[in-house]
Nucleic acid binder design. Structure first.
Lengths: 220, 220
DNA sequence: AGATTGTTTTATCAATTGATCAGACTCTTG
DNA sequence: CAAGAGTCTGATCAATTGATAAAACAATCT
């Protein structure tokens, strides 16, 4: 029984990751999985959006689930990359200004890539194998680092005294929702959630609520 | 050609709405549609959860879409009923305390019925016939009333000066997200998002951020 | 050139999907 | 009791689903 030459899991880690076709498929998966759900995105539509034939997905990925995981991995890699630079400075603790910057960066990232929060929201509503993967592999580390940052801010008095668990869901809710609901927002309001001015205004608004008016040189 | 006796749209508005079977189907639809997506919930699983045979869904509802709309209608009816009592007093405007109470009630409702926000989030991510129905029929009126209340609060100085569009997405994000992500929250934290103490604590937290520390008898 | 390995497509699979139809089961009403 | 309208179920439909098989295409090396 001759095994077909399907590499399926990147057996050959060539050099770095640069397979343009595979990347186009993952990009299409990110878009489709996030706006339809996992079940709502058919492999044929996935392939059509990537501009390839449908069976090619099963050549590059073991299964539809495998492709979904690749999409999630990609999105979290992007977020980690966007935040790690900032968080590195903060981990030590005490750096309130840095912590603020991280939160602001988080909001801006969620505006640029609402797909990540769309996929998280989809799977966080009910237990299942995909939520296992999402939480165990990706969300919990993010939660723990976020909680640590929140603790720093609360301890420093930079933020109202709210348990970090609630702060986590307040920030992950108040920040990305406008962008996750982008198409709805466009219909409901006159704002364009992809407009940078709107994004900045939203970050300002969330930070104003969290940190209060930005008085830099007022002492009592 | 003899038309089958399927009433499909409640031709016979008997007295009030009290069809136990139909209600059980809608209840099952609310749960399944909200935790899986529209495509992710099969009519067979829907029927199984309602304890009926699958073709019965097409007897009581014209189509799967029709059932979905009935589920959405039901959820919005519940929210309207939960909030209307409060909002009635506020509409006049100026009633800041009343407006606060409405927001608090909104958060508590989203904790009791996270299914509503789960279904909204699912359809707000991309245009389509279901988003048309949701926005045109239900969400826009809610948005407009909410924006009005926000305007009241901002004008009264009870809330930081943030454009109402942003306030809307901050509140609809910060309030329900912990409960929409209920199962995830249970894994991530040690909190039970169905526990009333947790719900109250979350409402407290959101209100603290919005309205500041609750000083009832301090005059400058 | 020919051979080999890796990539992509066309054709097809069984399984599941939403929906329909005809018939069985209730009921009430005559 | 018989009639008939209203409710519900089993059998089945065409269409779509994710996945596989086999063959066509492309590229590199000898």
């Amino acid at each position: 029984m001759i095994q077909q030459t399907a590499r399926h899991g990147r057996e050959r880690v060539h050099r770095a990751s640069s397979d343009p076709t595979r990347e186009r498929i993952v990009a299409a998966a990110i878009d489709l999985f996030s706006e339809r759900s996992f079940e709502g995105a058919s492999t044929r539509e996935l392939a059509a959006r990537a501009g390839v034939a449908q069976p090619l997905l099963n050549y590059h990925f073991r299964s539809k689930d495998d492709l979904w995981r690749a999409a999630v991995d990609q999105l979290f890699a992007e977020m980690t990359q966007a935040l790690d630079v900032r968080t590195a400075e903060v981990v030590a603790d005490g750096d309130v200004a840095g912590a603020k910057a991280v939160i602001r960066e988080f909001i801006c990232f969620s505006a640029r890539r609402p797909q990540l929060h769309r996929m998280i929201t989809q799977e966080s509503k009910a237990d299942g194998p995909r939520m296992d993967y999402l939480v165990d592999r990706h969300v919990r580390p993010v939660y723990e680092r976020t909680a640590q940052i929140m603790g720093t801010l609360v301890k420093a008095g930079a933020v109202p005294d709210i348990p970090v668990e609630h702060l986590y869901y307040i920030i992950t809710g108040a920040g990305p929702t406008m962008f996750v609901h982008g198409p709805e927002c466009r219909r409901l309001t006159s704002l364009d959630p992809t407009d940078d001015a709107v994004i900045q205004a939203h970050a300002d608004a969330v930070c104003l609520l969290l940190f209060g008016p930005h008085v830099t040189t007022t002492t009592k």
